[in-house]
Amino acid sequence: MTLATIFYAIGFPLLGIILGLLYKGIDRKISARMTSRIGPPIRQPFWDVGKLLIKETVVPENAVAWIFNVMPIVALASSMTLLLYIPFGIIKAPLEGYGDLVVILYLLTLQALAMAIGGFSAGSPFASVGAQREMILMMSYEMPLAIVITGFALIYKSFSLSTIALTPVWTLVGPVGWIGLLLLLAALLIVTPAELAKLPFDIAEAETEIAEGLLSEYSGRNLALFYLSDAVRSFAMVALEVALFFPFTFSQGFGLQFSEPVSYIIEGLWFLAKVLILYILAVTLVRTSFARFRIEQASRLFWTYVNIMALLGLILVALEVM
């Protein structure tokens, strides 16, 4: 075990949590300003987690206790691991070489699955309906997500994210591929809120319909873990999109050169700024300006329109590279 491993094992999850909660705070603030409210202070998510941690953790009587308690941990662990696969600008991903886009795809699924299983094990009708909805939604958005990732595999002939992040994808294809990539990007952007269980696809946690659904029985530490996993996953998902579609580095973009340590810091900050912008556009703005879909509408949307869009993009990309 080297020093670097220890840093990655402890430092990275901590960094992930801090960044996730920070971005959540910014997201809440901007969403509030969009609705003419003052909104909570940006540190609010940290307080929320702290408060949840000191609250009592209640396990419902007819829940399968061990599954019910384990699933929040699984969810958080999977989002954390997801973060370890994403390169921060030019800083290499900690788990570089131990897995690739396919693993990321599964990790994304795992978190949603953990929530669904947790919901089923809660033994409450609200949570069960929520879990059913989560499963249906998952089945719907996995397909377009997989198509997007296949598209990248076609272009790079590799599933490795670091390879992808090294050269911006836009430079590798011609005009037809550009259109294809734009379609893939659009499909991925539509999948994002579904993947993150945000409006308009927070169907599994619909407050007014099924009283927070999946999470209705969770409290205290378990809820805090889900909250954290949501924060980390939101950050990781957007970071993944940035790594896939906008890997432009600061020095490339502005034609500047920096010495070694400075460039790491600047590129890191540049990456965070890109993530923030995309976060606001793809998560905050979307969740603030749409109402919630019904589950069957959402799944129709994914199975038909988004799938067709993604497939079309894939075909265009394939035409270009074949």
Binding site: A32, M34, T35, S36, R37, S289, F290
Partner: peptide
């Protein structure tokens, strides 16, 4: 339309 409304409100001062 709602999205444009939200962006417009982002540029205004909070009503609260």
């Amino acid at each position: 339309k709602a999205m444009f409304l939200m962006i417009r409100q982002l540029l205004q001062r909070p009503f609260t």
